[in-house]
Write a protein that binds this DNA or RNA. Sequence first.
DNA 1: TCGTGCTATTTTTG
DNA 2: CAAAAATAGCACGA
Length: 470
Amino acid sequence: MSGRGKSQSVRAKSPEPAHAKNPVRAKSARQPPKEPVKDTKKETQQITDESKPKKTKEFKQPKLTTEEKAPVPHKCVEVKTGSRMVKKGHSVDSNPNKILFTTIDQLTIKKKHKSESASIVNDTVKRIMDHMKKCTECFKDVNALRTGSYYENLKISNPDEFDVMLTVPVERVDIRLFGDDGAFYSVAFKRGKHSLDRFLDEDNTISASGMLTEFRNEVKKCVKILKDVRLEKKKKGCPAVTLLINGTGTVPISLDIVLGLEVRSSWPPFTQGGIDKIDIWLGTKVKKEQKFKGYYLVPKYEGKGTVEREGVCARDAWRISFSHVEKSILTNHGSQKTCCEASGTRCCRKDCLKLLKHLLGLLKAENPSLSKFCSYHAKTTLLHACCSRTKDSDWEAAQLGLCFQQLLEDFEGHLKDGMLPNFFIPSHNLLSSGHDRKSCQLLARRIEEERNNGFPIFHKSVGTTSITSP
DNA sequence: TCGTGCTATTTTTG
DNA sequence: CAAAAATAGCACGA
């Protein structure tokens, strides 16, 4: 958003939020509400049922035709369905970009599959939320924050991984740095009583492991009677309670329920120089809005993985999380407000990320020594890239080939340097733990190889690949 | 079709 | 009784 508003307070947006955010939307006349809605569902149902058919038609008509007729700009026409036109010649063909468009097409989640998974997941989440609100004391105020690739429309291949953070608001807390790279913190109460007092350690900080254990028990309680759901074994240092759900004949769904503390205060000093880079890309106003939303802390152990570093004893702490901001800026990723909207120009930022995630998944499947790399590395690389190539015209949909090449070169650069700063905490190097120099170099070489040879690996398989989270 | 943000409306609260 | 919070319904975008 090119800073056009100069309003100081973010709250001041209330009078015209829709317009401010998206002028296009403002065009469509809003249907004035009809009859006041009655209490009972039955009555509501009847009213809608009677009046629905007519209205639906009115609204859909103009849309249908345009949607059906107009070719979606970013899809290559010849490649369109995958089922019809695509020849399975494994040679590198004349248009090297073709394989990219084809691959994107094949990574797209099928509507029916998505629908099935969504309903299963939503039922489960609703059940957990109800349980937390009604049957627990310390988790009764949780809110569900849907995050991760599925909810960012970046999930590829199968709708089989979902992330939901259940956030507990905390007030009057003292956030203290824990460790030296700015990613970990401990949380203490300033004064007064709080419903989380029972998790206090001897040093008056909230015990991450204690709270997570309790949280896990509550989740366990309420999914116990569900036959299709089972709990994955607790992994040390993992902030999520992972549920494995067997859908009807489909791939099992893994649903991460993450405990998070919601902190509504200004961001810690270690965030400086991180999100500030979006100024040129998205504007300072957007940055302010994001910062205003606060941040989250998820239970995570510090000091695990590498035992080499002496002196740092493994103690539990909270890791800072900006999942909500990631989601927000990825869904609203254009320098222009109309980027990727019907009336605007389509870009390929998200397609590039999907391809990178896919490539990484394939390379990992091929070589176990790359297991430490994860999709968050890919996402972070894209965020950095968006800050250096800030204009929407730098990411024209038709230039997918070039943009992807460039993004891969970026990634190779990070790997060769052994340095990929966390986008929000620049001093936190995502390649610092468990990524030895050798595996970084290896991955960089493999990517370069693919990039220079027309991505043979994309030709080989379109099988299901998924990248596990850190 | 799902997910989200927005508005109007109803319900609760001070 | 007014203000604030909760809820319902709708319109997009993906």
